[in-house]
Design a protein around this nucleic acid. Structure first.
Lengths: 233, 233
DNA sequence: GTTTTTGATTGATATATGTCAATTTTGCAT
DNA sequence: ATGCAAAATTGACATATATCAATCAAAAAC
């Protein structure tokens, strides 16, 4: 394990990497978080949180990128979303059973703060605005899963793959050209198909000039066409 | 429209039909609910709440049965769950955008209380135990959607249909014999397949003696076999 | 009671998708 | 650089699934 505790723990006070959610905390509350957090660095490929384990902490991703996925049937995975810096990871376990219901794995070297769950809940109880914003965040995540459910079950493979690529564009990189941090396997898990099918669809997209894949880089060449494929399913 | 206001509005106080969630309210809070609710009866087939509309109220289903579904792509639906009496319907819209993100339709004659959303939120803010229980409920719903996402994308049709039937058994009727309130279309929407495919799978199940379908009644004859089909996907 | 409409059923067919096995490429460690 | 292991690719094939068109049954409307 190459996880290690940060040698020089910064204070949460004024930390630019803390999820924006925490901007609603008072100085006192932030100090409480500070005193009950652990800051850990992960290398690409390492598991940050494992589905099924006890939820002792909630997470704030300070830097890096990670995939958040449900471990499904017989070694198959469903990626719910890609986690980008300055975002909070909680999940339905916070209030249901204090367990993690997904696994989070670093895609590139990432830095994460682990905040004590009990302290977090305590602050939620005491700070109304914070609680509302937290719930809004959580609800947005839930809606994203609704959308995922619909498009994964009601579109065919090209539409699903187009959605996956456009998701990376719209939500994660905000530019049509981005590093290929997701393997074909990951893209398959993101669009609910087999690896081989993912490869074939991507090849088709490339042949038709919709995308370009060079070493470690993906470029969405014809965004409009991809959006059309997404629309017609 | 055959919806009509109840002639003799009962008080929420002591109402046996109100979702158990509300048992955590004080007398005062319950009176507040009482003063800001409307009680409406629906006939089978009627729409109780329509996706996309403004969420002015949250719902408590007092009696009857309803299907709760997302309207997806080009007239296709994804049933998230069947709503049985004494259950609460809110959804991610409460904290996200005050909109309904699913449609609820009565499967049989049903009676529903509409509780003013602002009042509901006010009570949530003031009653910690109630808020926690509400969040636990909501989280359970979210987990059910996670499960649904996995089984709908990672199992094939027989497994999905077996899951749908076992869901009706386990969660809704709690007995292997139950009225066929869901059309084949509904069962298809519940297991993410076409009507025709649903018909065929059900015919196969019947041929193999796993289920029995007589007029308006469904019986799960060989539960173990269905569970096995569910398991192997 | 008859007509009309809706839902259920069926089989034939086309398409989508997964699986398998073989091959190539790539990344990594020596 | 060299070799090894993992990932990506490919095409052939089998299977799963949707679609279509036609028929049948049942419920609702007249």
């Amino acid at each position: 394990m190459s996880e290690y505790f940060e040698k020089t723990p910064r204070s949460c006070q004024g930390c630019q990497s803390l999820s924006s959610l925490f901007s609603l905390l008072s100085k006192k509350e932030l100090q409480l978080v500070d005193a009950n957090k652990v800051h850990v660095n992960f290398k690409a490929g390492e598991t940050i949180k494992k589905q099924g384990t006890f939820m002792s902490h909630v997470l704030s991703v300070n830097s890096g990128l990670a995939k958040l996925y449900i471990e499904g049937i017989e070694g198959r995975f469903a990626i719910l979303r890609i986690v980008k810096p300055t975002s909070f990871i909680g999940g339905p376990g916070i209030y249901f059973d204090q367990r993690h219901h997904f696994t989070v794995t670093a895609l590139i070297d990432s830095s994460v703060c682990f905040i004590d769950l009990q302290i977090f809940k305590e602050i939620l109880r005491g700070n109304q605005a914070f609680a509302e914003e937290f719930l809004k965040d959580f609800s947005r995540d839930v809606l994203a899963v609704y959308n995922r459910l619909i498009y994964l079950t009601q579109k065919q493979m090209p539409g699903r793959m187009a959605d996956a690529l456009l998701y990376l564009f719209d939500e994660i990189f905000q530019q049509p050209r981005f590093p290929m941090i997701l393997s074909r396997f990951d893209l398959a898990d993101l669009s609910a198909m087999s690896r081989e099918s993912a490869v074939k669809i991507l090849r088709d997209f490339q042949k038709e000039g919709l995308i370009r894949i060079s070493d470690h880089e993906m470029e969405l060449v014809d965004e409009d066409a991809l959006r059309k494929i997404s629309r017609i399913g």
